[in-house]
Design a protein around this nucleic acid. Structure first.
Lengths: 153, 153
DNA sequence: CGTTATAATTCAGCTCGTTTAACTATTAAG
DNA sequence: CTTAATAGTTAAACGAGCTGAATTATAACG
């Protein structure tokens, strides 16, 4: 399929990552009563710090009506705060409450439980090698993200 | 949070991976008209090769009735084949059709479009280092999987 | 100022995924 | 052989999430 052994290996790694992470993540979603959209919104709000209703809808690929209704639930559950933007009083500032941040953390935790098991069966020098390799990739991806953002604006 | 720099770095990497992979994956799900459950089922059937209806339900955390109805749709769309098991005529053998395999491939592709961009901005020696680091982790995770399976049986 | 555009909400209506319960068919056990 | 257990399907009913259209409030433009 892909001649590049780097790409082939990355494919395999993501397959493994997805299988393990999604299993626990979906279980957490069920148990906490949060849908995929809810969690997507929570992640986006966390990253944005504060954002409008329509922006969340655009991010999730739904109408602003759908986003507004979804936020009703999240506000009702105390995960999200909806306040008026003083700069432009048409827009509502959507932010995570402390409890919302906690729910986000729990979701991330659920997603990554298998990681500590992995850490347990790796030797110290193996961990060091892998850590620096991953850090290199993280830096490169972030660099890619920034160039995409500036290209869009 | 976690004192181990290995675990901390792995956390960051999975955060990056998830953000990029899920964005395209969810878009693909929408466009192809397949739900998260549908795709989950397709992934599971692919991995199992062939399996029963109840098994899919258990995997997805739903009743066998729900699994049966979901499979109706997938059969209707020509992604899945439902045949009688000759060994035990109560069970139905669920398998992916050629078109089902193609849909699976497309989903994986969508999930991993950003990878080739990443490959483009890495030097050859960087790729080699990362490739071997990832291969080590993949091997270790598989080792972990096998010990879990045997523990369960 | 009046007009137009933007942000968010509300409501009616639709589809989808799910569950429970009843039912059929087949196999296993006493 | 009779009874119980297992695998799967079907049907009715419900809730969740989405859309489109109408509505309100604010901002920007001429």
């Amino acid at each position: 399929m892909s001649a590049d052994p780097f790409v082939a290996t990355l494919h395999q790694w993501i397959e493994v990552t997805m299988r393990h992470s999604m299993r626990n993540f979906l279980r957490y979603a069920r148990e906490s009563g949060l849908s995929m959209s809810h969690l997507g919104a929570i992640f986006h709000i966390h990253r944005a710090g504060s954002c409008g209703v329509t922006e969340i809808g655009d991010y999730l690929g739904v109408t602003s009506a759908a986003a507004s209704q979804m936020l009703d639930r999240l506000v009702e559950q105390g995960l999200v705060a909806r306040t008026e933007d003083p700069e432009d009083r048409r827009v509502k500032r959507i932010e995570l409450t402390a409890e919302g941040e906690r729910a986000l953390e729990a979701g991330i935790q659920a997603r990554e439980t298998w990681m500590s098991e992995l850490a347990g069966i790796l030797a110290e020098d193996e961990k060091r090698t892998i850590t620096s390799a991953l850090q290199l990739m993280i830096a490169k991806v972030r660099q890619l993200d920034e160039s995409t953002i500036t290209a869009h604006s």
